[in-house]
Structure formats: structure tokens, C-alpha cells
């Protein structure tokens, strides 16, 4: 009971803090992203975060993240371990709340609507915001084909032609030619890179508008990593992608925008966000330059 009370208190304090800082940060975000036009916003493909804070118990791990994700772009989140990148993307599709003791503050706006608003159907949110995890995790009791279509069954969605969807998702994930003759075998026999692409195909089958990727290549060899990066580039034509990575070259290769996170002993916060080319060539902040040039972290 005590712990709960503390969490509530934290949440309350976080909320009040957010409201006090929100107006200024809103304007700063708007000016930091001049590329984003009103027409894109009107298309209803927008993902924005407003003053995101996160706690685990009393531990404040993430502070005041304001970030707009341009539709049809890839945004890379870089920064040292423990700076809250993974926690941040887990707040976006509401996976953060599964960790005992977790609390948060702020708003995640998908098409202008807060995903944390009361009455929101969490499962619908997760259908719109897909996720690929660090470790490949195909479902062991299902075949390759069943794995790809598992999201439809989980969410009880109907689709007219399952075979077409299966083929389309596997092609977009760059796995079709390798598995088309063994869709009825189990996914466990695939290599790590193939399993990860299977997980991407699985995430695509429910047609999300946003795809979150939490270090999707950290367990893979360089060849598989390049295949997945190709996949990410192709997918970015049709969806918004947010990728957490520790690999600076990867961020430079796949992303349009890069956000640099840092914790500096306290809660993690965002140092700066800009076009990837700017972050790597002329960052505004000295700490960003130190990090991307390998001088620390």
C-alpha cells in the first residue's frame, strides 16, 4: 500500500510539473521541426509526445521528452545505456505500464489524440503502433505463416485474403524468398536475423501506422543487420519508424532524424533532435558532438 501511495504521489507531482513546463516546450518543438507542415498533420499520420516523464518506483528515469515524429520518416534515438530510450518508446505504445512500479506523465498524441486519455482502447493503440523487440521472439507454438498472421488472430481482425497478406508482409520484411517453401515449418529453425525479420513481418500484418524498434539488430550479425536496415528504409515510405540503436553508423545509415538522449546522473532527457546529417556533422550541443564522435559513452 505504501509503495502505491508513493507512485501516486510521483504521478501527481509529475503531472503538475508537466503542465508548468508544457507551453514553452511546445513552442520550442514547433520551431525545431520546421519541415513538418500543417498538411502532414492534417493527413492524420502524426505522432507527437508532450512532456513525457517516466518513473520506476521512486526512480525518475525520463524527464520531459517533447518529440514530433514526421510521418513517413525514420527517427533514430541514440544515447548511452540507461538514458531512457527504451523506456521512452515503451511509453509510446503503452508497454511501459506492464513493469511493476512503473509510472508516467505527459501525453502521447497519435493523430492528435492522447493514447493515455481515459476510455482509450489500449489494444487498438497497440495495433496502430507496432513494436519490434531487441531479441527475436517468434511464437514457438506456431509455424512461420501462423506467426506472421498471429496479430490478426490476437486482435480478432478479419482479412479477406490471408495468403496475399502473408506474402505481402514477408516480402516487405525481406524474408519471402527465404521462407516461401516452408511456411508450414516452425520459426525456431530460422537464423537469428531471419527470426527478427519474421517478427517485423508479424508486426506489419496488422498494418500499423507507426513501428517502434528497440535495438532490433543488437543480437544480429552484420549481414543480417544490413538486410534489416534495407527493410527499414523500404518501410519508411509508408509508415513512421522510431528506432533505438547503440550503433551510430546504423543511425546515420537508416534515419532521417536523430534524437540524442543523455542521463548525466539524473533522469534521462533529450539533448537535441535534428536531421541526422546535422547531428553527425554539426551538432548544436557539445555533448552530442562528443558522443557521436566517440569521445564518451
Amino acid at each position: 500500500m505504501n509503495l502505491n501511495a508513493n507512485e501516486n504521489a510521483n504521478q501527481e507531482s509529475g503531472k503538475t510539473m508537466t503542465t508548468s513546463v508544457q507551453p514553452s516546450s511546445l513552442s520550442s518543438v514547433a520551431s525545431a521541426n520546421p519541415q513538418r507542415t500543417e498538411s502532414q498533420r492534417a493527413q492524420g499520420t502524426g505522432l507527437e509526445t508532450r512532456g513525457i516523464h517516466a518513473w520506476f518506483g521512486k526512480n525518475h528515469v525520463l524527464s520531459d521528452i517533447n518529440l514530433d515524429f514526421t510521418a513517413g520518416s525514420v527517427t533514430a534515438l541514440i544515447g548511452p545505456s540507461g538514458c531512457g530510450k527504451s523506456t521512452f518508446i515503451r511509453t509510446i505504445n503503452r508497454m511501459h505500464e506492464f513493469i511493476p512500479g512503473a509510472a508516467m506523465a505527459g501525453e502521447v498524441l497519435l493523430d492528435g489524440k492522447d493514447v493515455y486519455a481515459p476510455g482509450v482502447d489500449v489494444t487498438k493503440i497497440r495495433l496502430q503502433i507496432g513494436m519490434v523487440f531487441q531479441k527475436p521472439n517468434p511464437f514457438p507454438s506456431m509455424t512461420i505463416g501462423e506467426n506472421v498472421l498471429s496479430g490478426l488472430k490476437l486482435a480478432q481482425l478479419k482479412v479477406d485474403n490471408k495468403d496475399d497478406l502473408l506474402e505481402e508482409c514477408l516480402i516487405r520484411a525481406g524474408l519471402w524468398t527465404e521462407v516461401k517453401d516452408r511456411l508450414d515449418t516452425h520459426g525456431g529453425a530460422l537464423s537469428g536475423g531471419q527470426q527478427q525479420r519474421l517478427c517485423i513481418a508479424r508486426a506489419l500484418a496488422v498494418r500499423p501506422q507507426v513501428l517502434l524498434m528497440d535495438e532490433p539488430c543488437s543480437a544480429l550479425d552484420p549481414g543480417s543487420t544490413l538486410r534489416i536496415e534495407d527493410t527499414i528504409r523500404e518501410l519508411s515510405d509508408t509508415m513512421t519508424i522510431v528506432i533505438v540503436t547503440h550503433n551510430m553508423q546504423q543511425a546515420a545509415r537508416v534515419s532521417d532524424y536523430t534524437a540524442f538522449f543523455l542521463s548525466e546522473g539524473g533522469p534521462g532527457h533529450m539533448i537535441e533532435v535534428a536531421r541526422t546529417s546535422e547531428i553527425f556533422s554539426q551538432p548544436k550541443d557539445q555533448r552530442t558532438e562528443n558522443y557521436v564522435t566517440g569521445r564518451f559513452g
Binding site: F133, L154, A203, V206
Partner: peptide
């Protein structure tokens, strides 16, 4: 987590 992230209850 994977099941939940795919929109399963």
C-alpha cells in the same frame, strides 16, 4: 510482451 504489442488482450 510480443503478444500484447500485437494488439492482443
Amino acid at each position: 510482451e510480443a503478444g500484447t504489442a500485437l494488439g492482443g488482450t
